[in-house]
């Protein structure tokens, strides 16, 4: 079964599909941290549009991108995808 999650995100006149492969994702939280750095200039869970969690009992991981995602408005690249060490995250 495919373990791919797709998130269609809109900001201003831009629409982007963000694709996450949860089989490859290690839940290192790096995307989450880089997202908060974009939004607030510091690292936190609370300022991040991304929430990623692992379940220590089932081996499953979850991934959410909240509506506060502004498609890295003002950045040169999508920081979540750029700094994912595993290549689990793509934006198109």
């Amino acid at each position: 079964m495919s373990n791919i999650r797709k998130f269609k995100k809109k900001h201003n006149d831009k629409t982007v599909e963000i694709v996450v492969d949860l089989d490859i994702c290690h839940s290192c939280h790096r995307c989450e941290l880089m997202c908060s750095y974009h939004h607030s200039g510091s690292f936190s869970h609370s300022a991040s549009s991304i929430k990623t969690r692992i379940n220590n009992f089932t081996g499953e991981n979850s991934y959410q991108i909240l509506d506060s995602c502004d498609l890295c408005n003002g950045e040169e690249e999508y920081l979540c995808a750029k700094f994912c060490p595993y290549g689990a995250l793509f934006a198109s």
Binding site: H26, S27, C28, H29, N56, G59, P85, Y86
Partner: peptide, 29 residues
Amino acid sequence: KKKWACSSCPFGGLTFNHIDEGKYEGSTG
């Protein structure tokens, strides 16, 4: 069955395991 990583780790050394056969079947962690 799954690889995890510690916070911000690019290697990912933590593993999720499940023994799904034999006399220790059901052991997980």
